[in-house]
Amino acid sequence: MTNLDIFLWVILPYVSLTIFILGHIIRYNYDQFGWTAKSSQFLEQKRLRFGSTVFHWGIIFVFLGHVAGVLIPKQWFDAIGIHDDMYHFGAIWFGGIAGIAVVVGGFFLFLRRVSVKRVIKNSSVSDYVALIMLGIVVLVGFTNTAGYTATGGDFDYRVTIGPWMREILTFQPSEAMILAMAGAPIGFQLHVSLAFVLFAIWPFTRLVHVFSLPLKYLRRNYVVYRSNKPVIKNKDTHKKEIN
């Protein structure tokens, strides 16, 4: 176990996750005004339509795929009768389609951001950093699925990256799993470590809007009232809602 291994598979994740969590808490408390999706649809919408829709739907499924592949132990799948073949079929096909959606949608968003004058002029450094980092992580990840796993690579992330990640999240990293990470193919190593770099910059970019998905809207009354007076008689009428 080299120092590099410890840095990449223990220190980096913890530093990154700390920044991720604290960063969000601090920004949420001190920068509500800057906490937005930063939509640029008002300036240009023809070219946004395809890219934005495809990218966002794709990334939702990619996220769910990562939950299934990394956070949920392989044994759980085995227990409910989903065997390796079935899992891999799902991972490659559904994951592959979602991945294509993200790559293609993201590519359209990238093109739009670098070619539409109005959008260029109104982009901040953080927009580019977020987009490029996200793009690299996505491309590397997609290459792993499409170029390695789908073509018969025998590295099983469900018995290496999965357990390692769960150990990190439960604060009990083990030497065995760190070594397993150190022995993973370079593509997977890159994807994981770059993802942690992305998590570290996440709270300081527009990506925070992920946490503002307004699901509360579904259970809310249409018209919102806010009262000046402190007495709360009717719960519905006083709530200040922030998503």
Binding site: P214, K216, Y225, K229, T237, K239, K240, I242
Partner: peptide
């Protein structure tokens, strides 16, 4: 107000 998913728009009670 009814269209705002975030609940950022509101009508003043008073």
């Amino acid at each position: 107000v009814s269209s705002c998913p975030s609940g950022a728009m509101y009508k003043r009670e008073e």
